[in-house]
Design a protein around this nucleic acid. Sequence first.
DNA 1: ATTTGATCATTT
DNA 2: AAATGATCAAAT
Length: 222
Amino acid sequence: MKISPPLTQEELLHRCYQIAGKTLGMLAQEMGQQTPSSLVYAKGWIGQLIEKTLGANAVNLDQPDFIDLGIELKTLPINAQGVPCESTYICTASIPNQDTHFEQSRVFRKMAKMLWIPVEDTQNKPIADARIGTAILWSPPTAIKNQLRQDWEEITELITLGHFENLSAHIGEYLQIRPKAANAKTFIQVIDHQGKQINIVPKGFYVRTKLTRQIVQEHYAC
DNA sequence: ATTTGATCATTT
DNA sequence: AAATGATCAAAT
């Protein structure tokens, strides 16, 4: 069952409203899929199910999920306290760095307009029973965008200078960089600040829950 | 091989 | 408990 992409933002939001309140089990059945009993070997299953349901057309491309609308879709696991409980993957970090300005960067191209789909956390319940929440269409307000730019610049500078030894997940208020690979023995070759070729594990950019908690809270406050 | 979809597992 | 580091599968 292949679903065509929504032609407008309104159509996309309408599709979101139609799945809000449904459980993952219901949605999987409608899409003719089996619900996995565990996410251990199906970590991206929820996101991919919702992408297909909504008609995302940039699956596995280095572009926002809904290319023509410039909207990036993210599922957001929400715990029993109503709070996002995991960080959000944004994109891989190209090393050597290729983006000179934040606005043109891979990170910002995806974060300029995001559609957050809250989904009940599946830690303590069957995956099929987790309910889908109300979508939040979001663009970073100026203050947050500025902080994201600052985080991005700090991380990007270390990459550009080749100071990989100082690159860590502790940097950044909202944005962070972490390993992103099949496992810790996966390497890419890079040139460090001394001009020496070294091996490091590939990295990806993530958004901390500090930001997603804020987004969720502000959205449901009004 | 790489980028996507993320969550799991361990450390702090 | 929260954050960091490690890992798994699909698509191309």
